[in-house]
Design a protein around this nucleic acid. Sequence first.
DNA 1: TTAATTGCAAATCCTTTGCAGATTC
DNA 2: GAATCTGCAAAGGATTTGCAATTAA
Lengths: 138, 138
Amino acid sequence: MPDIDERSTALRPTRQRRAITDALFVATDFQSAQEIHESLRGAGEKVGLATVYRTLQAMAEAGEVDVRHNPAGETTYRRCSDSHHHHLVCRGCGRTEEVTGPAVEAWAHAVAEQFGFVDVHHTVELVGLCAACAAAGR
Amino acid sequence: MPDIDERSTALRPTRQRRAITDALFVATDFQSAQEIHESLRGAGEKVGLATVYRTLQAMAEAGEVDVRHNPAGETTYRRCSDSHHHHLVCRGCGRTEEVTGPAVEAWAHAVAEQFGFVDVHHTVELVGLCAACAAAGR
DNA sequence: TTAATTGCAAATCCTTTGCAGATTC
DNA sequence: GAATCTGCAAAGGATTTGCAATTAA
């Protein structure tokens, strides 16, 4: 009863998927399916919105992209790995600072190892009040 | 030109708001507006779903509750502060481990200070493959 | 009495699905 | 030719909004 090779979803390299992959590669930050779709349209690539959703989902499942949810509740994607940063967002004015967290990266690794997890990615979000807003009594 | 006291949104202590606050207090983890609504119904409290949404939003804006998005994309809420934990989620089977991160807490504080932010809350999420799934070739 | 709050239902918005036709293997 | 993949439009779900009635201050 061959069951071993079950998981090899083998995504076919279609024009649309190539386009989406490229869009993800060019982008620096997380993007929603809708944003990617618009971006492709703008670039002249004709790809259906549903296809974008389906492809991103498949890629996420295959571990090819990282997923997160933006404050607006949209699901957003970003190509995996490479040194990334986190965000420090002001709850008052929405101002965003990019921060890196060597300490966090290390911690994430340690925790993953401790629990026997592999291929661990992480998302960190800091939300607070910036000095200006705090001064304004926000 | 009095403008100073502008931000005091002064939420009125209505029956509904009290009920929602209580529900949040009892809960240990993040809950969606819908879950809270159901929970209230079950407890005999009659509160409109829209009110739950509006109240939670207001509380979030006032910094009285923390907000996050669950994997399903729903917005979830939890009362602020008190020692909390983070999650290590398996991308293969969905298994979830609770982890604490003194290191992360410290880092968050440091970063906040460095950027002049105050009252900073944070969310951390680790996603990877658990040992079992990794062994299964997921 | 005045301004805030609520409920309900309608309206939005993001995302998923059904299905016939196009595409890759 | 068989299994995938696409696009379109319809369907789903969560969240928001309009508005008249209700309630707190």
